[in-house]
Design a protein around this nucleic acid. Structure first.
Lengths: 126, 126
DNA sequence: AATACATATGAACGCATGTTCATATATAGG
DNA sequence: CCTATATATGAACATGCGTTCATATGTATT
């Protein structure tokens, strides 16, 4: 016999069965895991970071965003759709223009915490 | 003349030149943008979310992580390397085993804020 | 030294993702 | 109604990413 096997999975050696059992119980629901991953993935792109950073300062229309970022209107619009889908930004129409702004305050805090971690990581980077 | 053009970019209509100018000044440094995006991208994967959630509870060795997640040791190891590269987890060796834990507290808060946003988004979802 | 075990890593494969290009929708003005 | 403008969207293309498979490294045991 070469290996121990966990109860209901593929062949993996288990070293601390109690730990594994305990962790399987406190596992997050799939929906929560997916949701969390989606939020973070949405923020995990330079263009979207830049957009979010601007919208933290003020609401902006699509055209101005594209100009300020030196990118095409189409690219920005696609990104805004993604941010909108995951409720990170909301929009209002004013005539021909559509203005975007942050959807809620948690995003602000997410940003701040991200920056704090960045600093922390830089310390250790030396 | 069909369009206005921004000073130093490709052809994009500018609607509020003052806003665009102001935003260009408060732009984040490229390094910061990249760093932030990398942190969030790193958290933007279901497997890594699950790993981080476990490590929030206790330190764990690679084998147990693989067993608890019903995934191959190789897959987990690859993911741990990514988390390690971006200083989200740290590791210590104890004999043949390597134990992983969260690197700092900001990650905890990042998680919490992500979850809060999840709830917020669920309200609006109806 | 030789074996067994825990972890790490490189290559490869399939799938997701960001941008561009072309075009559609929506609103204002004549 | 027709044109111009602001935004949205679908298809396509290139790049990036997560997993698997095979294998290497590192550590204890005999």
């Amino acid at each position: 016999m070469k290996n121990q096997f966990s109860d209901d999975s593929c062949a993996v050696t288990v070293i601390h069965p109690e730990v594994v059992a305990e962790m399987k119980q406190v596992q997050l629901p799939d929906q929560t895991v997916t949701g969390l991953a989606e939020i973070f993935k949405t923020l995990g792109d330079p263009t979207r970071i830049r957009i979010m950073h601007f919208l933290r300062k003020r609401e902006m229309c699509v055209c101005d965003l594209a100009a300020a970022l030196d990118m095409s209107q189409s690219a920005i619009s696609h990104q805004l759709r993604i941010l909108r889908n995951f409720r990170l930004v909301k929009n209002r129409r004013d005539g021909k223009q559509v203005f975007y702004s942050l959807d809620d305050d948690h995003v602000h805090t997410l940003f701040a915490q991200g920056l704090e971690h960045l600093e922390h990581a830089s310390w250790n980077n030396g």
